[in-house]
């Protein structure tokens, strides 16, 4: 670009319009890619954990959720490996922070739950307490994830995403509170199968919510490009 100081008012406006358009396009592309990678990484991780749970017939594989931030970080680093770093903007940062808060709350509660389990089983040998205290349940994950999706909808000014978030949060919370998935499975299969679904069902739900809350908005933003 030349350093022309005698440009016309029309040319000035054209430069402003072109630069703002370019910058916004790049920011949108970068936000869309980050959302897609985070969503796809979550879905792949859910599938992996779900399959391991079914194969090993135990819920120990859920410990792999702690690797989730590392997997997403590697994915984002891989995405930006050869490209010129795109600028940061408030929308992208806000969406990122909403999901960061969600991940921190859920993983911290999950860590507390594991510590509580360790305390009950190994230290005081009181299995009864395990049944009464549920620090992190599927309905709480649904509620938090629904809120994160609705907030993302507000930030991105997407009505359908806002409503998806509300429906997911309230609908998911009510369905889980009344044990509808368990009753449905128990009715169609057996109580044993339904009981075992506690190990893999959260993976299916997280994958579904990651698709609605991260992959779909990512694709929508990519479409807007």
């Amino acid at each position: 670009m030349e350093d022309n100081k005698n440009m016309s008012a029309e040319r000035s406006l054209e430069i402003i319009r072109e630069s703002i358009e370019k910058s916004q396009k790049d920011v949108t592309r970068s936000t869309a890619r980050s959302m897609l990678i985070s969503g796809l990484a979550t879905i792949v991780m859910s599938a992996l954990i779900g399959i391991i749970c079914v194969c090993t017939k135990s819920g120990t594989a859920h410990l792999l959720w702690f690797l989730m931030p590392i997997v997403i970080w590697i994915g984002l680093r891989w995405q930006n490996r050869n490209s010129v770093p795109t600028p940061k903007n408030y929308v992208g940062m806000l969406v990122g922070k909403v999901w960061k808060v969600f991940a921190i709350v859920v993983l911290t509660l999950f860590a507390c739950q594991i510590l509580w389990l360790f305390f009950c089983v190994r230290i005081v040998n009181d299995i009864q307490s395990l049944e009464t205290v549920h620090l992190l349940s599927t309905q709480l994950i649904l509620l938090l994830m629904g809120c994160a999706i609705a907030t993302t909808g507000y930030v991105l000014r997407s009505s359908w995403l806002k409503w998806c978030g509300f429906i997911c949060a309230i609908g998911g919370y009510l369905l889980e509170s009344y044990d509808v998935p368990f009753q449905f499975l128990a009715h169609h299969t057996s109580y044993q199968t339904a009981g075992f679904s506690n190990a893999w069902m959260p993976c299916v739900i997280v994958a579904l919510f990651a698709f609605v809350g991260l992959v779909l908005p990512g694709l929508t933003l990519k479409g807007k490009e």
Binding site: M1, S12, I15, I16, E18, S19, I20, K22, S23, Q24, V27, P87, K88, N89, Y90, M93
Partner: peptide, 12 residues
């Protein structure tokens, strides 16, 4: 002007 316009829509 181009630099300023690029920075106006991005935080940094």
């Amino acid at each position: 002007l181009s630099i300023m316009s690029l920075l106006i829509s991005a935080e940094e």
